[in-house]
Design a protein around this nucleic acid. Structure first.
Lengths: 247, 247
DNA sequence: CGGTGTCGGTGCGGTAGCGTACGTTCAGGT
DNA sequence: ACCTGAACGTACGCTACCGCACCGACACCG
């Protein structure tokens, strides 16, 4: 549709599409810029494996990355989701270097890559970058906490609504490319459960989907259908990271 | 039993019982000491209400604090658990000042209280204290992430085992005072569910309980009964915070 | 000593989601 | 044009857990 109009040329990302990068003051920004490298993020690409040492951090612009925990028996569950509002690889500056979870590209796009050692060095200047990253980390913590609550108390249908909303919030349009099987992996439920819930949402006219292509038709109704978890996390992100500057 | 021998007098806490405080170098420690105040932590006491501004942080010594999310309909779920290995109130130095969750004393004891403004100031010296707190925060993140996974995939019985293990890890003995009703609130399940699982564990000889008094009889078997989540979190805490110094 | 409230045990119908299995529809390749 | 495989639909028995209701046991208190 209007995608081409919205994204001139082949939509080469600009760093400022990432909200964290956009919020940096000029001086911090200048130092960082030299080390940034734009990288393609194909669907399914694994940025970090569980327990592996991280060498880079990533600032997504158009890509969406899922933080996923994979259990011994192969079952999985999404811990959090990171798009152009955030950064992948917080454990680098938090001090642990690794995490027990996996970072995998959930929606193809692009991200800026920065060497971990350099970001760490910048982080410990204890300036605006540090404050920004810490605030983001707190927002991420809220998201994880709410995921725990949601997993405990809410139905698959509610969780699907939340997940769809969180995803399109991180994309330029109201469409996303994602099979029901993949969504099931993220939510940690059966594929059939997603089929059923998605079918229900389609019948209600909230979404339409077709072979891995999902369009959100009625965003407001979808919000009404979701559990409170979506709103709680969104409000907390807006509160902690009000710097929703030039996209 | 040997409790009296282990805890001379009425067990007045010493600051170094908290692992984070114990790990501080002398200089940091000296600055902090003047601002610390030992506080009793009665069962059920609410340290922070969801969304309220935090004025202090707490370093538990003998108390255990639960980070609990309470939903609109009154249902609840534990997000994480903090004992003498940690600190309550990370959002103060992370930058958000508040969180959408509640901190409530799950096991009575004591904690050292420090004014938030002072801790924040110390944190931004970007020295050992900062590094320590950030590492702890990452460990906490792992705990929350694993809670999300556990809520998704594991049975009440497995979760109960995990919860018991995490609790006694933070206490000097293998006993804890906790009704099944309270445990149910923490796990976000029905009281009857806890009754059933606890009864099973008792029949197996892993624990014994009586009117709010639980004794872990066979720790190893309990670990074997728990899901992998317990071990994952424990290993991550040990890795990130190896400073398990003088208790 | 008996009353009252907390704590725990049990039972029963209802249901969301699981595991499994098998079908259908569509896209893309040779 | 056909074949293959990916994506989605449907159905069935099963289990864990919920909501509710009720009851017994013990502890503390007047």
């Amino acid at each position: 549709m209007g995608d081409i109009a919205n994204q001139p040329a082949i939509a080469a990302s600009t760093p400022r599409q990432n909200h964290l990068l956009a919020a940096l003051p000029p001086k911090e920004w200048d130092r960082l810029q030299a080390y940034m490298e734009l990288r393609p993020m194909p669907l399914g690409h694994v940025l970090y494996e569980s327990g592996s040492t991280m060498r880079h951090v990533y600032f997504p612009t158009t890509a969406i990355v899922s933080l996923l925990y994979v259990m011994e028996d192969g079952a999985s569950a999404e811990i959090a989701i990171v798009g152009n509002e955030g950064i992948v690889g917080i454990s680098l500056f938090m001090g642990g270097e690794t995490t027990p979870s996996r970072a995998v590209v959930q929606s193809a796009g692009q991200a800026y890559r920065v060497p971990g050692s350099f970001l760490k060095q910048e982080f410990f200047r204890a300036g605006p970058l540090q404050r920004l990253l810490l605030r983001y980390t707190q927002a991420l913590i809220t998201q994880m906490a709410q995921t725990a609550v949601c997993n405990r108390h809410h139905t698959v249908e509610q969780q699907l609504c939340r997940w769809l909303l969180m995803s399109i919030d991180r994309l330029p349009s109201n469409e996303l490319t994602m099979t029901q099987e993949l969504i099931a992996n993220m939510l940690g439920v059966r594929r059939e459960g997603v089929t059923e819930s998605a079918g229900k949402l389609q019948k209600l006219g909230l979404i339409s989907y077709n072979r891995g292509h999902i369009v959100v038709l009625d965003r407001e109704a979808l919000e009404a259908h979701a559990c409170e978890c979506y709103a709680v996390v969104k409000m907390e992100f807006d509160r902690l990271l009000p710097i929703t500057m030039a996209q």
